[in-house]
Amino acid sequence: MSTSVPETGATAAQSAERRAVRTRWLLVSPAVVIIGCVGILPLSIILLYSLLEPAEYAGVVWTFSPEAWMGLVLERDIFDDTLGLSSAHLTIYTRSILQALFTTVLTLIFGFPTAYFIATRPAKERNIWLFLVTIPFWTNLLIRTFAIMLIVRDEGLVNHALINIGLIEKPLAILYTDVAVAIGLVYAYLPFMVLPLYASMEKLDFRLVEAGYDLYANRRRVLRRVIVPLVKPGVIAGCILVFIPSIGAYVTPRLLGGGKNMMLGNLIANQFGTSRNWPLGSAMALALMGLVMIALVIYVRNVTAAGQKSHG
């Protein structure tokens, strides 16, 4: 008796565990297979490209060369042929990262209250609000960007309004500046912040919020100490969805920035276009992907570790 019971218990638990593992892999396999075949397999082609020499016009020739990877940050000066850091590349990288960070922070500042507001509407109204927020985004990004250009133009709505109420005398030059790019990016990526935030706020347990108030906390403290930690997964998901795509943004910086300052997306695209250097473009893309991937893995480690702590 004393020996058989724990044994059956153990096998039952084992087979349950095995079943759970099987289900898990079954569930995850369609996504992994689709992305693996159509997303990652083709990338091995890009990895190959990055290790070859550029062909005369487009594509690559099948000769090994580490040049592309060195070209990420180094370049031979065209005038005195000394090898040094490529100031053009570094400036463009820095600009892209700053612009993306700025976009993420701004979408969070605007997106958080919006998502919270929607999540605290009566249940029946919430979907309507969600639709109201997303409908503008069913209109193509290019068209929306043109409309934004009309608004921030020298003779546009914003300047007219400001002049009419007497705040300024001469129109502000907003269009074709970094400010316009920032406006455009925030506009373009706002739903990518609002929707994940909403998904995680919608089930916010307000008993905890109330407990916070009961403990003499004021609104600001409750927001910081109770609400934000509770919806953290949503905040992180939103930040990832905004930050990563805006680092590689292509259309918005061109149209609203007037094309005078390149961003990473444009730099990489050029390598596959007029600059005719596919290996360098490939290396740049892989480097960007590697960096983002490392950051993500660290994030997953932390989140799962934190999850285990709180569950255990």
């Binding site: 065209i78 590349h89 094309g259 444009n266 730099l267």
Partner: peptide, 20 residues
């Protein structure tokens, strides 16, 4: 006519430097 690769490489550097 299309310029040789070496020239395009030089042009690209000037262009990137202009738009950096």
């Amino acid at each position: 006519p299309p310029c040789p690769r070496e020239v395009t490489e030089l042009y690209t550097k000037i262009w990137n430097n202009l738009l950096k």
